[in-house]
Amino acid sequence: MIQYRKILELHDDGISMRGIATSTGNSRQKVTEVIELAKKKGLTCPLDEEMNDRWIEEFLFPEKSFEASGRQLIDFEYIHKELAKPNVTLSLLHYEYEAKSRANNKIPYSYRSFSRFYSNYAQKYKATLRIRRKPGEILEVDWAGSTAFIIDRDTGEKVKAYVFVATLPCSQLSYAEATLSMDLHSWIGAHIRAYEYFGGATQIVVSDNL
């Protein structure tokens, strides 16, 4: 493993890039990359005792563990910034992440894993963890990204069906149904049946880009 800690400590001592490269056995390009990325992410000396080489690598290059698994990378910095915006939730960001995974032919993480990875990131590297919505406060709604099909039993024809999904983000309790259209009548009807299923109405409805 690259001697990340030694690179940062030598740089803090005023050693030149060439000197650091010689001392650690790494190329000057790698030394420069590590130092600039550490500066960008706010990792400065003196380093805490727990910040060993593995800790620093996970902090600077979190994507390495994801690449090895063949899964779609999670852009934690983007997620953290987006969650600061009004009406943006972790559930909606996970829908966006799944769509990106499909487009890149990558395997997406489940919402539970996605949420856990972000929480670990925020608690480890950030001063604050974005506060989630209170139970029952909002309902997140959208048409699912992939179009489904039903078969007409009389003609054998494949008919498009559009899947409506409504989720309570705190509990992750979800309602889904397929409709033959995405018109206003179908949209309103799906909401009514979702609220009947949940047994009540939320204060806020948050929709994605419809």
Rank of each mutant, 00 (worst) to 15 (best):
I2P: 12
I2C: 09
G14F: 03
I15N: 11
M17A: 09
R18F: 05
G25D: 08
N26A: 11
S27Q: 06
A38S: 15
A38G: 14
K40D: 14
K40Y: 10
C45P: 13
D48Y: 10
E50K: 12
D53F: 02
I56L: 13
L60P: 08
E67T: 08
S69D: 15
D75S: 07
D75G: 03
F76T: 04
E77V: 08
Y78V: 06
Y78D: 14
E82T: 06
L90Q: 03
L90Y: 02
E96V: 04
Y97E: 01
R102T: 05
N104P: 05
N104W: 04
S110R: 02
S110L: 00
Y111F: 14
S113V: 15
F114Q: 00
F114H: 00
S115T: 04
R116L: 04
Y118F: 04
S119F: 07
N120D: 13
Y121S: 02
K124C: 12
K124R: 13
T128N: 15
T128E: 15
R132Q: 13
L139R: 02
E140R: 01
W143R: 01
A144F: 05
S146T: 14
S146R: 10
F149A: 10
I150D: 12
I151P: 03
T155W: 04
E157Y: 04
V159C: 08
A166K: 01
L168T: 03
L168G: 06
P169D: 00
Q172N: 11
S174Y: 12
A176M: 08
D183P: 04
W187L: 00
W187H: 03
G189T: 00
A190I: 02
H191A: 04
Y195M: 12
G200Y: 03
A201N: 14
I204N: 12
V205I: 13
N209K: 03
